[in-house]
Amino acid sequence: MTVMPGHRPTAASDSPGAPPLAWRGVSFLAGGRAILEDLTLEVPAGGVLALVGPSGCGKTTLLNLAAGLLRPSAGQVAVTARRVASMFQDARLLPWRRARQNAAFGLRCLGVPRHARLDAAQALLESLGLAAEDGDKFPHQLSGGMRQRVALARALAIEPDLLLLDEPFSALDAVLRRDLQDLVRAAVAERAVTTVFVTHDLFEAARVSDRIAVMAGGPGRVAHVAGPGATTLQDHDDDAVMARVRALRAHPAVAAAFRAGRPEARP
């Protein structure tokens, strides 16, 4: 098991129950085309699992199945997690609600009283690097990075035990992306939330996650699953990330998956 800061290293081994999320023999058809075919993947409790693969390989579909936004055509999506939170490629904030109210949206859905949820949301926003007065702003008054922080706060506010991230950094510029990656990693590690992270960028996957499931397209399937290996998440410096990416790329299944989706495999 991977050692993560603030995370009990034995979390998985001392809870022998079902994994928080598993896709078992899942197929998904859209418009007569098979997006996913007989895909089986278990997400063990704790840590970050990256689903990485070329564009159009069904990563987002897989995540939407887990979020309950889609139903599989065949197979089973088993979610034993109590609370599931999502973060999307764009922040998807309500334009007519202030940042604080947006961050409190999940709590509102759970029926938390107004004052309690707004106070919790404000505290969370500030802990994620927003200024106190930013809580009063409307989404259009915030920059892209700040909006994603609000979306992260909205997801973390409900204290999820399963967090689904769908390319949450891809709309940001390089510097901002690194900041937010570190922020998400730290937040997730601190709370020991099981996290599934979808990206098309192998570097990003290597930087943020402990486990990496490489998907291949047409129809989507899991080509290769790489465990945390020798690198612990504390040393996710650039050399370690590069080494990890090189090791992954050396694997024939990974190389094949990314060759097939060449044009969009790397940003």
Binding site: L69, A85, S86, L94, F105, R154
Partner: peptide, 28 residues
């Protein structure tokens, strides 16, 4: 539709979806 998906992902009850999502949008 994206906001609708977001609300569904957070299991928003119908009342919350009406007040926070549909009404403000319709009003605009």
């Amino acid at each position: 539709a994206d906001l609708g998906d977001m609300a569904r992902a957070f299991r928003a009850p119908l009342r919350v979806r009406l007040v926070d999502l549909y009404l403000p949008h319709m009003l605009s």
